[in-house]
């Protein structure tokens, strides 16, 4: 399992924090996206090993986007990211093929732990 990551989150704040954490933990962020459209565009150019996907985005239904990502890039592993209180959506995401989830708020260790676990 490689260590390239794409971050999909409409919040610049979240993207920056995740970039910081991932760099510290030895991952390489190859792309990020603030919207579903941007995610699909960047996906084709960067083919990341892991995609960190915020399930609530302004322009897309997160679950539909998840399906599009999985069918466009079946080799990438999608990790769903969301705040507390979204358990039903997370469960649906896992049913649709997401490999894991990270609940906000997260610690750098938790993010690393989830991503490392994908390699097993």
């Amino acid at each position: 399992m490689g260590r390239t990551v794409m971050i999909v989150d409409d919040s610049l704040f979240m993207r920056k924090i995740l970039r910081g954490i991932l760099a510290e933990k030895g991952f390489i962020v190859t792309a990020d996206a603030a919207s579903g459209i941007e995610a699909m565009r960047n996906l084709h150019s960067s083919h990341p090993d892991i995609i960190l996907l915020d399930i609530i985005l302004p322009d897309s239904n997160g679950l539909e986007l998840l399906e599009s990502i999985i069918s466009a890039c079946p080799n990438s592993k999608v990790v769903v990211c969301s705040s507390i209180g979204q358990q039903p959506v997370i469960q649906k995401a896992l049913d649709l093929g997401a490999k894991a989830f990270i609940q906000k708020p997260f610690t750098p260790e938790k993010v690393a732990e989830v991503l490392e676990s994908l390699e097993a």
């Binding site: 919040s11 979240m14 924090i17 969301s82 705040s83 507390i84 209180g85 906000k104 708020p105 997260f106």
Partner: peptide
């Protein structure tokens, strides 16, 4: 809903508990 939700997530990451509590109740 999305604004409240995003704000909650950000505040939680920064550890601003009061903001999290209010945003969470508004979101609910």
């Amino acid at each position: 809903f999305r604004h409240a939700h995003s704000l909650k997530g950000m505040a939680a990451t920064m550890g601003f508990e009061q903001v999290v509590a209010i945003a969470h109740l508004m979101e609910s």
